Amino acid sequence: MTLTITRTHWAAVTAVVLALLFAGAATVASARGEAPTTTAAAPGPDSAEAGFARDMSVHHQQAVEMSFIVRDRTQDEGIRSLAYDIANTQANQRGMMLGWLDLWGLPKVRSGTEPMAWMNNGESGGHGGHGGGHGGHQVRDGSLMPGMATKTELAQLAKADGKQAEILYLQLMTDHHIGGVAMAQGCVDLCTVEAEKTLAQDMVDGQNSELELMADLLKKRGAKPRS
């Protein structure tokens, strides 16, 4: 019992520390002239740039959470390594996006705006073979955007062990990446700030590569993606 509490606290604290560290680094880099734009030319609150930064930060946070959960539920080094890479990469990217919002003087959370509404401001319908836009997505049980796991699914992952936890994680993260790729492609199509477009394209490329890896890992476990 003590070990479980310690691991849970470690996961939560580490995730928060990573996000804060990378957010701080992004803000410092922005102040040094490495930011995607200056405050004077900052995107507006309804822009694709701001919407993507806000929504993808939320999307990424859940990926970090799921990755820390599975690291405590399996001893398989391949899955643990993948989970660490995903958590590290997405915490880093999340920090950059939150840093940009700070630089632009925009809120990280905006009430009264539906998730991914910014994608309707342009012609960014379907994207790639891993899923299209967010049309028809129902916000339910903690799943705010396409690909996001529900609270029930997160609870199931936290209770699973070994191979069962590995398969569920890979399936949930596959869905998560499919939704993430579609959203990132939306920024590639709609965002005008070059640094943010580049980051979004990196997400598309990186997560598509991880989708192939996760499909192979599922196959080795006698399972397959849910979608």
Rank of each mutant, 00 (worst) to 15 (best):
L103W: 08
G133V: 07
Q93M: 07
G112S: 09
L98I: 09
R140H: 13
G131V: 07
E77Q: 07
L106M: 10
G147P: 02
A83H: 02
K108S: 14
D85Q: 12
G131N: 02
M96W: 08
V109I: 11
G132R: 03
M97Y: 05
D141G: 09
E77D: 09
R71I: 00
M96T: 14
Q75I: 07
Q90M: 06
G131K: 01
H130C: 06
T150A: 10
M119D: 04
L82Q: 01
I69G: 01
M97D: 05
G99M: 02
D161K: 14
Q138S: 12
A63Y: 03
V64T: 06
D141W: 06
Q90C: 09
G133M: 06
L101N: 06
G147I: 00
G95L: 06
Q138F: 11
G78V: 03
H134M: 12
E123S: 08
M145V: 02
T74K: 01
G132S: 11
E77N: 14
H60A: 05
E77M: 12
A158F: 09
T152S: 06
G129V: 08
L154E: 04
L157M: 06
E114P: 10
V109A: 13
W118I: 03
G136T: 14
A155L: 11
W100L: 04
V64M: 03
L106K: 07
W104A: 03
R80S: 05
A63K: 03
T113M: 11
S81H: 03
K151N: 15
M96L: 13
V64L: 04
A117Q: 09
T152I: 15
E65I: 05
M97L: 09
R80G: 04
D72I: 08
L103P: 07
D85W: 01
A117C: 15
G147W: 01
G162M: 02
N120D: 12
I86P: 02
D72A: 13
G105V: 14
H137M: 15
L101F: 04
L82I: 00
D72K: 05
R80D: 05
Q164T: 13
E65H: 05
